[in-house]
Amino acid sequence: MDALHAVRARGITKCFGDVVALDGVDLDVTRGQIHGLVGPNGAGKTTLLGLLLGLAVADGGELEILGVPVGRAFAAPDGVAGFVDGPGLYPSLTARQNLTALAELRGRQARTAGIDDVLDQVGLTDVADDRTRGFSLGMRQRLGLAAALLTRPRLLVLDEPSNGLDPAGKRHVHGVLNRLAADGTSVVLSSHRMDDLEALCSEVTILATGRVVFSGPLGKLAAESRELDYRVRTSDPEAARRLADGTDGIKIADDTGRQPRDADVLVVRAPVPALDALVARLVTSGVAVRELAPVVSPLEAAFLALTEDRETSR
């Protein structure tokens, strides 16, 4: 029994006919950690989340969830909640009735189950008595999260929880997930939104074609990343260009076509030390630096690099 990890997977394989969805996947999720799962479409993320939720059984390998070995039954141990491919809601029931039915399924009284509390946590108190038939995708996602919270999970498994969320909804969901993690609940979530993962996750696992191509802290991922492109907005673009051209390790990369052309912006490709040197030279030359930011996030850059490498090697 592993007291440190909420999930411990070793060599997990899962096939659907001739298709290998997961091929020797290892995964460690520390208790109280928010762990991101990233990968291109068809990488096996949903299959892996389905295994954690007990919706499928692995063909090979070892899987422990909350310290308990998973057998061949189609069911997850107690303490696991979440959803894949969107939450399951019954449109003929109101938000409150959906949660009440779920609470009573678990043998709890609706009045003491904390329904109002979880509705408040996800920001759906105002629409608690509306039928979910008319709910937007973001509202459905939040109600799905509320349903999962109702079971007081120790492991929360979420597939694309940020889909369809407006900024307020996103703030609610992030707040809930951070509070859960702080209280010791482990969260495994998949997302294509790199900004979400960077904001929430302490560790990520990158999957490509059913295999793990990276697993570890975000910092380690950034260190392993190749050079990034940065947008530099200055008070004197011409001077900035000249200075960048003369700085070791800096390459002008503003013709990449990724962004609409902006005369004030210079795009450079550089490792962090060379970028630091460029900033120092700009400042000493009297050129004001008004914006400095990576064109794509380190996680996205690493994701693209690792998954593109994988695709190329195939």
Binding site: G54, G60, G61, E62, L63, V68, P69, D78, E104
Partner: peptide, 23 residues
């Protein structure tokens, strides 16, 4: 790499039939 799945029983507590029926 191991290719076996642990066969020991999991402490899964399914919801009872009466509660599921009510649901």
């Amino acid at each position: 790499m191991s290719t076996t799945v642990t066969a020991s029983p999991t402490p899964v507590r399914p919801v009872s039939v009466p509660r599921t029926y009510r649901f």
